Simulated scan of single mutants.
Amino acid sequence: MNKALKSKLLLISVALVWGSSYMLSKLAFDYTGALTMIAYRFISATILTSIFFYKKLPEINFRIIKKGFFMGIFLFLAMVLSTYGVKYTTASNAGFLSCLNVIIVPVVYYLLFKKKLKKKEIFGTIISFVG
């Protein structure tokens, strides 16, 4: 399998898993709470990441832990908001709102860093907005 085909298949699989996660989250709320579900997701992600990157674990130092802690706070807040959003709305609405980051990220990037966006980034943002 060539590299281009492999990358396309991986991208499609990520989209399928991400898209189906909203429906599965709605079903999981019948059995557990939002924070418990987030804990399971973070624990499983930690285990899988540790398995795949076990050779890098000895390189972790305090600076990396500190940066990871602050990034983790933002990730946790995003997950809590997203998970509670799925709980209180339909899976399709939650998926739509979560995918708005495709539109929001380039705009925030421009506003924060005052760097002009490339034509293809503007085009992608417009296409995403219209879609």
Rank of each mutant, 00 (worst) to 15 (best):
S92E: 07
F129I: 02
M23K: 08
S13F: 03
K115H: 03
S82H: 14
Y110L: 14
S98L: 12
Y40S: 10
K119W: 00
L5G: 01
T125N: 03
K26C: 10
I38D: 01
L111W: 08
K115E: 10
N93R: 15
L24P: 01
V102E: 00
G95P: 02
T89W: 04
A78V: 08
M37E: 01
I127W: 02
G72K: 15
F62R: 12
L16R: 06
C99W: 00
K119H: 01
I47L: 15
I51S: 06
A28K: 14
L11G: 13
L5I: 11
R41H: 07
M71C: 11
S13T: 09
G85T: 08
T90G: 11
S20C: 13
I127D: 05
I65F: 12
K26R: 15
A28Q: 10
L117W: 00
E121K: 05
V102W: 00
L77D: 02
M37F: 13
F123D: 01
L16K: 05
G95D: 05
A4T: 06
I65Q: 05
K3A: 11
Y31N: 12
G33N: 14
F70M: 13
L9E: 08
G85H: 07
V107K: 08
T46A: 15
T36K: 09
L48E: 02
E121G: 00
I127S: 11
W18D: 00
V86R: 01
V105Q: 10
I122R: 05
L9G: 07
F53H: 09
M1D: 03
K56M: 10
N2E: 04
L81P: 00
T90N: 09
V130H: 02
M79R: 07
K26H: 15
F29A: 11
F123A: 08
L75H: 02
C99L: 09
G72R: 14
F42C: 09
F76R: 11
K67N: 15
S20E: 03
Y22M: 04
E121D: 04
L27S: 09
K66F: 13
N101A: 12
I12D: 03
I38L: 10
S50I: 08
A15S: 10
L11K: 04
A28R: 11
K116Y: 02
W18G: 03
R63W: 02
M23W: 11
I73V: 15
G124P: 00
S25H: 08
N93G: 01
I60T: 07
K67R: 15
F70G: 07
K114W: 05
F96L: 14
F52K: 06
Y110T: 04
P106F: 14
P106M: 13
G95T: 03
A91V: 08
I60N: 04
A94G: 06
F129A: 12
L57Y: 02
A15K: 09
L5E: 01
S25E: 09
F113C: 07
K55M: 07
K114T: 03
G85N: 08
L27H: 09
A34N: 08
V86K: 00
G131R: 05
M37H: 07
S98Q: 13
R41A: 12
S128Q: 01
I103K: 03
K55S: 10
T32G: 07
F62G: 02
A15Y: 07
I127H: 06
I60C: 05
V108Q: 11
